[in-house]
């Protein structure tokens, strides 16, 4: 009896305020879509970092014979300079940051170059002497690039130090900004959602004042009186959050996996599985929002 009664009360409430209910659903839908997008963007960044940071290294390019760099004034790097640089990288203050160092000779670089650009007309014009020999350094912690760069930068015989991670920084910056944008919009929409849920519950409570008045009079418990209103808000918000999950799922499936995934294939993309990881949090967020708004409203409008 209880459950059935509460359910029918909820049904009446939702239908009576249909337009308000729909607007609550839509606002939670949009706001949580933004929240979810922000989360997915961060997951995307995480995936790229995981995938790429394992591969990237710091390259210390040594002077070739025809370099215009100041530190290469003496022409091609000498064995002495090379030993010097090697010693600097082996020094105890740098050692803990370095996982592995290997030397790539001009010949090796040339071979790799030829392999990578096989069939290009300008590749055949390159000679071994156009190549740099280099130290390739794998860092224990890629964030500590500066420590390693400092000891070799500007030394005689070093043409340039390059952190391959730098190449990605710009991309990550763009993605981070996008996350902030989505997060900001989400925050604004969430405020709107809370206000709207509050108003909806208030309207609902006011339109049923006669009922709640009688309920109080005949001794219905506070919980029993307030539950239908709370559930009304929670149900509307939950539907909104499910729509948001559905929207994100479709977006990832068709935009990312089917479109981006086939046209730009070398990037590890977020998948619908990631959407499902985010989903419970979105639904929980919707329920918490609704609960907070109803507690605030109901304590004022259906006092015993």
């Amino acid at each position: 009896m209880r459950l059935q009664f509460i359910l029918s009360e909820i049904g009446i409430g939702l239908r009576r305020n249909l337009s308000m209910t729909v607007s609550v659903i839509l606002v939670t839908f949009v706001s949580l879509t933004f929240v979810g997008s922000a989360a997915l963007l961060q997951m995307q960044i995480g995936k790229m970092k995981d995938d790429w940071y394992d591969k990237v290294e710091v390259s210390v390019f040594l002077c070739p014979s025809n370099s215009s760099a100041k530190t290469c004034a003496g022409g091609e790097v000498t064995a002495e300079q090379k030993a010097d640089i090697q010693a600097a990288l082996d020094a105890p203050e740098v050692k803990p940051y370095v996982q592995k160092i290997y030397f790539e000779s001009k010949e090796q670089a040339f071979k790799a170059f030829q392999r990578q650009f096989k069939g290009q007309f300008w590749a055949s014009a390159a000679t071994v002497d156009d190549m740099n020999s280099s130290f390739r350094i794998k860092l224990t912690d890629p964030e500590k690039y500066a420590v390693v760069a400092e000891v070799v930068q500007g030394r005689q015989g070093v043409e340039a130090v390059e952190d391959q991670r730098r190449l990605f920084d710009r991309l990550f910056l763009v993605l981070d900004r996008a996350t902030l944008l989505a997060g900001g919009l989400a925050a604004v929409m969430l405020v709107a959602a809370v206000l709207l849920i509050t108003t909806t519950i208030r309207l609902s409570a006011l339109s049923r004042r006669r009922e709640t008045g009688i309920m109080r009079l005949v001794g219905a418990s506070t919980m029993f009186i307030q539950l239908p209103f709370m559930l009304e808000g929670a149900i509307a918000a939950t539907i909104g959050s499910l729509l948001a999950v559905g929207g994100l799922w479709l977006g990832v499936e068709y935009l990312v996996t089917d479109w981006l995934g086939t046209s730009v294939g070398w990037i590890p993309y977020v998948t619908t599985a990631d959407v499902m990881t985010v989903a419970p949090f979105l639904v929980a967020a919707a329920i918490v929002l609704a609960a907070i708004s109803s507690l605030v409203t109901l304590s004022r409008y259906t006092k015993v």
Binding site: M1, F5, V218, F224
Partner: peptide
Amino acid sequence: AFALQVIGKPRHHI
């Protein structure tokens, strides 16, 4: 019946 429903009386009682 409303008065009994809202204090959780069972249907057959109502």
